[in-house]
Each structure stands twice: as structure tokens, then as C-alpha cells.
Amino acid sequence: MSWTWFHKLGSPKWFFQFASRWSLCVFLGGVTLLVVGIIWGLGFAPEDYQQGNSFRIIYIHVPAAILAQSCYLGLGIAGFVFLVWQMKMAPIFIKSVAPLGALAALIALLSGAIWGKPTWGTWWVWDARLTSVLVLFLLYMGVMAIQNSLDDKVLADKAVSVICVVGLINLPIIKYSVEWWNTLHQPATFKLTEKPAMPIEMWLPLLVSSIGLYLFIAGLAMIRMQTEILNRERRSNWVKNEVLNRGI
């Protein structure tokens, strides 16, 4: 098995060139699917027989909640890669994606609170799922605080990598909290091993908006990573040539 792809991903130059070609396409594709999915869900999906129209916030809440966890999983993997192989792209990925994951977690918390008011009769309860997502948001904030406060970039990269790896323990707590404890939060909407519990007319726009949000964030992440690469590799000859060629 060839590991060429793995070493390429660790090269700032290779990734910068790759992202330059694909970031805008991925971003625009994500925007398109996200708009279609949200309009489809908010305007055309059938009303829920129990929750009425209040359930429609699911088309914002669920994609954001899933994405927040996926982003942190990516941070944890990147942190492990940096601690083991010292690849330059790992801390670049962490610094670029952490704010996006934090935003997704914040949207999940706020939209969940808005959804909880008509459903549970309260904006917030110290439910296991809600509390663990709040911890996820605080982990993101901690990662960003350390990266932006430490002048020693090597020390900052090592510190946030450790936090990202250790924080992975929170992800299974988020996922299985509704099964391990008696919570108000409903079970998972998406399950790879089971048929969706909701009708396809409700499920399809949710799938479209989720894919759209993933692509949207992926495009933003690639754009942010290009900026971070230029900042970190600014003394490299290839960056100087890139700046001259593009007139940046």
C-alpha cells in the first residue's frame, strides 16, 4: 500500500495548490445545497404530527450538531498526527477548523434552545446531551484561546494537540448520552444501520442541508488553511514565488 497521499497531505505546498483549485468549487457547491435543503425543509416539508411547524428548526439544528462533532473528530485526528509525526499541516488544520467547529456547536446550542422552548417548555435544561455539547463548545474555545495567546507557536501547537486528543472522550458521551442516561433529548436522527424514523419527505431535505453544510464548511476550511499556510510558510521560497505570481 502506497502512503504517498498521506505525505502529500502533510505538505503545505501541495495542499495549498490543491485547495487553490478546489476550495471555491466546494464552497459554492455547499452554499447551493445548503440553501436548497433549508428552503425545502422550512417551506415545503410536511408538518410534524406532534410538534407542528416547530420541528422545522431540525434542518438547522441537526446539521450543525453533527458538523460540530465531526470537526472536533478532525481536530483530534490532526492532534494525534502532529504528536506522532510532527506534520506541519496538522496544526494548520486545527487552527483553521476550530473556529468553524465552535460556530457549529454554538448554532447547535442556540437552535436547540429555541427548539426546546415549545417542545420541553424551557430554553435550557442540564440534560446530558445538551451539557456535553456545551463542553464541546468550551473545548473549541480553549483550543482557540491557547493558539491565540501563546507566542511560542511550537508550544501552542503541542498544547492544543494534546487538548484535541484528550477531548475526543467527549464525542462518545455526546453520541450515547441519550442511551446511557434518562434525558429529554430525542435519539439520533441519522443512523447508518437503521432506516430513518421520519418520512422521506422530511428526511431528504435534512440530508441535503447536512451535505451542504459539510461542503460549505469544508470550502471555508480550505480557504482559511491557505491563509494560514501563507502566514506560517512566508519565508519559504515557494510562498514568495506564489505571492509574486498571484500578486498577493
Rank of each mutant, 00 (worst) to 15 (best):
K13F: 12
E179P: 01
V62W: 03
M222C: 08
S149T: 08
K240I: 10
I223A: 10
M144W: 09
K117Q: 12
H185N: 06
V165C: 14
A105C: 13
L75P: 00
G101P: 03
P118G: 12
W115T: 00
Y72R: 07
E228K: 10
S210W: 09
Q226L: 10
L33A: 06
I92C: 02
F15G: 00
P205E: 06
T227W: 08
F216I: 03
R234L: 15
P91Y: 03
K158F: 13
P91Q: 06
I163F: 11
R235Y: 15
V84S: 12
L139W: 00
S149I: 09
C71Q: 04
L244E: 15
T189K: 02
E47C: 11
W120T: 04
G112C: 03
L28E: 12
I163P: 03
S54A: 09
T189D: 02
L75I: 07
L138N: 04
S20G: 15
I60Q: 01
L42A: 04
K88T: 05
F18L: 08
R232K: 15
L184G: 05
N241T: 14
G142P: 01
L206M: 10
W120V: 09
L168C: 09
T131S: 15
G79H: 08
A102L: 11
L155I: 11
W3P: 10
F55D: 04
G37W: 00
K8I: 07
L83Y: 08
L106D: 06
D157C: 04
N237W: 13
W120A: 01
F16T: 01
I107M: 07
F18P: 00
L9T: 02
L83G: 02
G112I: 00
L103Q: 10
A145L: 11
A45R: 01
W3R: 14
G30L: 07
K175P: 08
V135G: 05
G37S: 07
I223D: 10
C71P: 02
A156P: 03
D152G: 13
L244K: 15
L192V: 14
L109S: 04
K88A: 10
W181D: 08
I211C: 15
M1R: 06
F18S: 03
R232D: 11
P63H: 08
L168R: 07
R235A: 14
G29D: 10
P118C: 05
T193Q: 09
F55M: 13
S70P: 04
A65W: 00
R21E: 11
I39H: 00
W123Y: 14
E228Y: 05
I229D: 00
A108I: 00
L110N: 02
L28A: 14
M222K: 02
A105K: 01
